[in-house]
Write a protein that binds this DNA or RNA. Sequence first.
DNA 1: CCCATATAATTAGCCGCCATACTATATGGC
DNA 2: GCCATATAGTATGGCGGCTAATTATATGGG
Lengths: 168, 168
Amino acid sequence: MNLEQKYEALLAEAQRRQLPDVAGIQLCFQTLSLANAIDRNCAARLAPHGLSEGRFVLLFLLNSTNEGLAPNALAKQAGVTRATVTGLLDGLERESLIERLADASDRRALRIRLTRKGKKVAEKVFDQHGRWISGLFGNLSVSEREQLAALLDKVTGNLDVTTEGKSL
Amino acid sequence: MNLEQKYEALLAEAQRRQLPDVAGIQLCFQTLSLANAIDRNCAARLAPHGLSEGRFVLLFLLNSTNEGLAPNALAKQAGVTRATVTGLLDGLERESLIERLADASDRRALRIRLTRKGKKVAEKVFDQHGRWISGLFGNLSVSEREQLAALLDKVTGNLDVTTEGKSL
DNA sequence: CCCATATAATTAGCCGCCATACTATATGGC
DNA sequence: GCCATATAGTATGGCGGCTAATTATATGGG
């Protein structure tokens, strides 16, 4: 089953208290544990390249345009705040993976562009990463995938919409 | 489908590049998006009580013992480092939910105990939280749950064990 | 008995995320 | 043309996680 430590403890307590639907709780913890494990795994794979998941997303967003993007646009596409983008760009700039260029037509704005090194790293990591992620769910059959997708969707519907909206 | 912004972007790029098994990648992102949504939802529910998920776990661990626990033990059971526990305890102490007591037999050690307020909050939040979590997966039938659990397990097996070990 | 080593908690410093507040610049209405 | 308002990027400070270093105390071997 492989739950994280904290969830084992929470689950045991839920059982002790005879909460309704302990099985559902367990399933929730299983889902969260899997996602956390994937995230940790992902972070460990990116770290050797000087990347975090956040930095990686920016790098790849930049890699898919030729003329560069404004921090503004990066924030929107990455689903984080502009302030967070500033921090991530600081890191990427320190590693010489991106450069901040002044925007010719708007003196408030910047254009972020990959350096040659940045492009190289982006290509390399994107490929490697894609193969890794594919592998994660690669041993599921087509029907298993459909099942899983449908089940996850069904659960997603139960979430509180008010908080979900924040991610947009 | 409801993927997070960043995953939409990554997925589009994966398609553009015709990576193998885009469907698997999509499934991965769906899983991660669901987990993140649950986490955000959880955080939003705990925040009004002055709690984060980390603080909540400690609170509940403390609530299930009468004599209190050492930070040491809390770290092990919560699956985080002692340093992190120190920080979480600082927050809980600021909110007067716990108190740090000297250990009689070992002058290096502490015994962390819930205050009356802490006990009250713990009980209240634990109940509320349990019901919420149950609800999340509550609309799945028994066979759907079994399916989901089996599928998640199957995916978990694909993860890199070396990095997973960190959580223990 | 003393000293090396282990352990308990904390501190300091880094990262990534957030919200909020600030500065500089655009832009639209009058 | 000017001023209110909006927008771009950043600074600040908080949170929670980490590692590594520090300080205090136990403990075991010689």
